[in-house]
Design a protein around this nucleic acid. Structure first.
Lengths: 255, 255
DNA sequence: CGTGTGATTGAGATGGGTCAACCTCAGTGG
DNA sequence: CCACTGAGGTTGACCCATCTCAATCACACG
């Protein structure tokens, strides 16, 4: 399997059976025969250009959207036009699950870079899950991962120090890229500083300053959207670490 | 496990077919016959006392947990013993969905008041979903609602002003109680100030001060955990309103 | 009637918001 | 070739909301 990222239609056609996201996407753990059934209902779309929207707020939910390649942001418009970034979505990740509740999208999804998405029509899903043993379980697993990322997001927002939020954010991105088989220490940020700010509940200036400071401290090297992590352990320590530095010195093992 | 349930067993037995949560819980929209199949696998548990934990971090996920009655908090322990409240869960709401991802709980669920939970064993779920048409869809709907609440939580944390966070929090609670058929303007907070603080990314003193101020402004009346909302519209305005007053006057179609 | 936990209130310190200037760079057109 | 332009990003100075530290209060319970 070559990892050449070329827009080879024939390759895309091969669909789930040979998709590089097998372990992340729905088909994982499903045998070849059943996979064919799934293939039959998965729609594949051609790339969306940067800035294009996959769905809008209020639109009825018609399918599960999986990022096949690229990156998206999902944005909720809090009244008054204030935009809150609900999530960033890389390859293998689901988008717009919030719409499962009422059937209408609560956020809009916009491509941050040229991207490709796969779609599983909702109306077919019920039927196919019944036909394909294990698919239901796998679906729940992917949904669970999505929820897990939402909780990571919560954890970031719960941090007081902007420095820590940024560190968690970068560390989380690093981890996700690593799981995709890409470099966890050097990658391009697909989103703007503005997006990061809205994702982390900060203003753009604070994001910028935090980047600068992390760079001055030798943890990272940033130039525009190019990011290189120089000291991943330190970044992780900063991310998960010093929220309660001194308060509880005697508190390791069991109470 | 012997089932020595001491209270109104008969009432609990009626299970899904007569459960007051029908429209919120899994069975909604499923006919009587199929409901019986679901009933067969849903476990009902005796009440948990306040402070009791339903599951702990790291424990394997064995079932979907639905609050039948009472209230829970789910808590994630960020290293160093720092606790982050991931969510509050009232009747009809799911808990611990984050564990769907890796099969292990990432947070622990603790009863805030005496509570009862229903459980749907995960291993049986796949099978039953295949047997009961529509159940899969309904399951996804309930999960979607849960994700929706997580996003509401995000929205709170994204707010800058503590006042606004508290307002959103109270308004959200009010809304959830209303949907349960309870008074939306007068209820008891099942959680402590500490819990609220950790849920909203604030310190306890700030929560306390915000309550006081909301009371001074005539929006609410608080006494300990007793809450009465005096001006719901004003509370809603404060919640969804003044985050970006003027900034983006020109913002509609495509750029 | 003490005791302890949870909640409130006060006074001072600080991190990040706000406002504003400036920088960087790619695209454009003279 | 270079000046112009505009969007995205950085930096600086100031201010205020929240955090921190600490005292006090409220109330349930033994």
């Amino acid at each position: 399997m070559t990892q050449s990222v070329v827009f080879d239609l024939a390759k895309l056609r091969r669909s789930c059976t040979q998709c590089s996201l097998q372990t992340l996407c729905l088909p994982a753990g499903i045998d070849q025969h059943d996979l064919a059934q799934l293939d039959a209902i998965v729609h594949r779309r051609r790339p969306l250009a940067r800035g294009q929207r996959l769905f809008r707020i209020g639109a009825p939910m018609e399918a599960l959207h999986v990022v096949h390649d690229g990156a998206f942001k999902t944005v909720a418009l809090s009244d008054e036009g204030g935009e809150q970034i609900v999530g960033f979505h890389l390859a293998g990740e689901l988008m717009g699950l919030d719409a499962l509740g009422e059937g209408q999208h609560r956020c809009e999804a916009e491509a941050l870079v040229p991207s490709i998405v796969c779609e599983v029509p909702l109306d077919a899903l019920d039927e196919v899950c019944r036909a394909v043993p294990g698919l239901q379980t796998q679906l729940l697993r992917v949904i669970g991962r999505s929820i897990g990322r939402d909780q990571d997001h919560l954890a970031m927002l719960a941090r007081r120090q902007s420095q820590e939020r940024i560190a968690m954010f970068l560390h989380g991105l690093s981890e996700r890229y690593r799981q995709l088989g890409r470099s966890p220490i050097e990658f391009n940020l697909p989103m703007s500083r503005e997006d990061i700010a809205r994702y982390l509940g900060l203003v753009i200036e604070t994001v910028s300053r935090s980047f600068t400071r992390l760079q001055d401290d030798g943890l990272i090297k940033v130039r525009g959207r190019q990011l290189r992590i120089l000291d991943l352990p330190a970044l992780e320590t900063l991310a998960h670490g010093p929220s309660d530095p001194a308060p509880t010195p005697v508190r390791s093992g069991v109470a």
